[in-house]
């Protein structure tokens, strides 16, 4: 599959601090791609380099098959982007703000103003001044601004900030609609649950480096394999399993056990789970529950970025 974004050896330093460190990234065309990382991981810096807002110190970037910076104008002509919170001329209406951007794009962009506003649900509020818009309306207007270029690639930085639950639901459907139309959506976000619902592939960056990349299933299956065990004597089961050096077991508040399985030759912990069951049954315990724990993207994110136990902070 061709790459919508191809980044190689990309480095950006601010003084002695390296914000993006020899980053390698390939975003396939026609998918929703989540770009995750803790505060200061380099997410926004990468987006700013993609859009020509700041210059990299080293490395190569290609967008939509076009090399940057040589072919930046052509690449950006087919790209729509929201960087951080969308900003506008507050004294102008939503429609006038889109006219400002359309003037910098092409004559076709003017023809797309009405449809873009309608698509994000701002058709009837387009002639109000932006200073009266809520943050959610500004986010929608930011997406409408992206659509003026009929983009093959949308780069969205925290786009669902400020949206209410209904707005988030609509936004999710809108993003999937873009992907169904063959567009690529590159979504940088802290809202891991949203990324999990929207995206096909995910990259996790920390301290400017790519530390995990793949489909959601690949990422979720990459962590610890956990098993919840229910039996008639949890204390005895715990003592029994603690004797096994390969297993770590803890007693849950529910009176059940959580066991960390050992993966052997990519078996996803199956042999280990069977061994647990066998040990308990042979000890005369009545086992009524053996339930693998499905890791969420958030758990994997916190494991990978070594922040287990910390709440993700808004950027």
């Amino acid at each position: 599959m061709a790459a919508a974004i191809e980044v190689s050896g990309l480095t950006k330093r601010f003084g002695s601090r390296t914000a993006v460190d020899s980053l390698e990234l390939s975003v396939p065309e026609g998918c929703a791609y989540g770009f995750l990382g803790p505060n200061g991981a380099g997410k926004t810096t990468l987006i700013r380099m993609l859009l020509g807002l700041t210059r990299p110190n080293h490395g190569q970037i290609a967008m939509l098959g076009l090399n940057l910076p040589a072919e930046r104008a052509a690449a950006l002509a087919r790209t729509g982007a929201i960087v951080e919170e969308p900003r506008f001329h507050n004294h102008l209406t939503g429609r006038q703000n889109l006219r400002i951007i359309a003037a910098a794009r092409s004559s076709e962009a003017f023809d797309r103003i009405a449809t873009s506003l309608a698509r994000v649900g701002l058709g009837d509020r387009a002639d109000e001044r932006v200073k009266r818009y809520s943050l959610g309306m500004r986010q929608r207007l930011g997406v409408a601004r992206c659509l003026l270029s009929d983009p093959g690639l949308l780069i969205l930085d925290e786009p669902s900030n400020g949206l209410d639950p209904a707005g988030i639901h609509e936004f999710r459907a809108m993003i999937r609609g873009f992907v169904d139309e063959g567009r690529t959506v590159f979504l940088s976000s802290h809202q891991l649950a949203e990324v999990e619902r929207i995206c096909d592939r995910v990259a996790i960056v920390d301290q400017g480096k790519l530390i995990a990349e793949g489909t959601l299933d690949e990422l979720r299956s990459g962590g610890e394999k956990l098993l919840v065990v229910g039996c008639d004597d949890a204390d005895r089961a715990l003592a029994l399993l603690e004797g096994s050096p390969a297993l770590a077991a803890t007693l849950l508040a529910s009176g059940e056990l959580q066991v960390t399985l050992v993966e052997v030759a990519g078996d996803n912990g199956r042999a280990s789970a069977a061994a647990v069951n066998r040990a308990l049954v042979e000890a005369g315990l009545a086992v009524h529950k053996l339930e693998p724990v499905e890791a969420t993207l958030e758990q994997r994110f916190l494991e990978i970025t070594s922040r287990l136990g910390e709440e993700p902070e808004p950027e």
Partner: peptide, 22 residues
Amino acid sequence: SQDHSSGVFRDLVATGVSRLKL
């Protein structure tokens, strides 16, 4: 100054139009 102070300058740059023209 209005494009810069409103924060819209980056969105204009992101259209691909040259900064000199802007």
